[in-house]
Design a protein around this nucleic acid. Sequence first.
DNA 1: AATCGGTGCTGGTCTAGTCCAGATAGGTAA
DNA 2: TTACCTATCTGGACTAGACCAGCACCGATT
Lengths: 237, 237
Amino acid sequence: MRIETTKAVTAIGQVLQEQLGHGLLAPGSKLPAERKLSELFGTTRITVREALLQLEAQGQIYREERRGWFVSPPRLAYNLMQRSHFHAMVSAQGRVPSTEVISARLQPASAAVCAWLQLPALSSVIQICRARRIDERLVLYVEHYLNPQYFPGILQFDLNQSMTELYARHYDLHYGRVRFEIVPTALSVDAAAALRVSVGSPGLRIARVNYDQHQRLIDCDLEFWRHDAIHVGVDVV
Amino acid sequence: MRIETTKAVTAIGQVLQEQLGHGLLAPGSKLPAERKLSELFGTTRITVREALLQLEAQGQIYREERRGWFVSPPRLAYNLMQRSHFHAMVSAQGRVPSTEVISARLQPASAAVCAWLQLPALSSVIQICRARRIDERLVLYVEHYLNPQYFPGILQFDLNQSMTELYARHYDLHYGRVRFEIVPTALSVDAAAALRVSVGSPGLRIARVNYDQHQRLIDCDLEFWRHDAIHVGVDVV
DNA sequence: AATCGGTGCTGGTCTAGTCCAGATAGGTAA
DNA sequence: TTACCTATCTGGACTAGACCAGCACCGATT
């Protein structure tokens, strides 16, 4: 650990990091208020805030709007090659998943979605927006876009469950080829609202385009992850 | 586009974004100085700075230390399945790559590197640190760690070229299986220095563990990308 | 022609506050 | 017990400055 720094913000970061490293601040626990910290370190709130933002960028802490700063839990391992769904993946790592549906409706597709699903302009698609939690913490906002021709009546089902299982059970559709596109960027306005984080927070956008067992393009997902919630693994053989 | 916002920082962001979107600010061009912008928008430098940091988080602009803010060029498409090397990949996308060696030496491995390379504690490894550019812009800092038993005398070669080609030509080693691990995080101190960005800037860390054609674990790379410089694609069949 | 030294400009860092709105918890009234 | 209300605490957003260090450019010296 470097100590010779003179900058206040890195110094504050190091002290907090040191406490984090030694487990004195457990995952999920709350940090003292910004005003308390500025008093503690003998500096202004703006400077403390800058240090906190850096730790946030590193994924060590996160905030909940107007509630405070918290220590980040370990990242979820997201392996793109094991085609597992959220619920199974989270459970397998000894953690507790949950899902809530935000909206589900048939609507005109945006240009980007038309391109992904290879549909003509102004096509209608089924959009399903969901927020997902690990151990009660909101970590993922997903927009699913389904080609309606393959999923008649799907809006009547319980959409809190896994889509993968729903597809298999009621439509006999199974994922085949998948294309992922991963972009580090800020969370979209919708994603930030759903995850209850301030707009402009860093995030990881993962777009998936899914084919079924017959090589038909059936749906695509747009996932917005809290940037500190996952690490992505890929095995290429 | 939403306009009904009242917050100054999002308002500033929107104005700049609008100019960006219409190509009035071309990729690579310089934004007015922070003080100029604060005057222009009738606010303080801190507020302007916050807006700029949000655009940076979105990957639309970037800064060079004490030189100013610039419009981000398009992202490089990094496809993990096409095992192409940096030089070929960048050239194929009509852009100009370059590489400079920062350091290259035999040294004791860190605990993390020992684990990746499956070497006993306190093993020596060859570390090669390089910085890479696309169209003159520094975008990638890489630390290579080679198992020295497979690469006798490699430090005498010109390390500005592609390692992939060097392996093939002089050691008859070709990459086989590869494992990637992608983590959105802040740039490390070394990476930030090499890329000449301020410490704590957001980045994408991609760790690769490489096997050769005989399934032997030969080396690993630790890549730190500017977060706005790439988007990662993966095709899973 | 090449080098050196200013000098102004740029972002980097920091101070010392203010006002606002959402979240929380405790107490009071129905 | 339940519902509501209010005081307090939290981060969010912002003002109006300050000083410093690195960068770029230009002119003077070698």
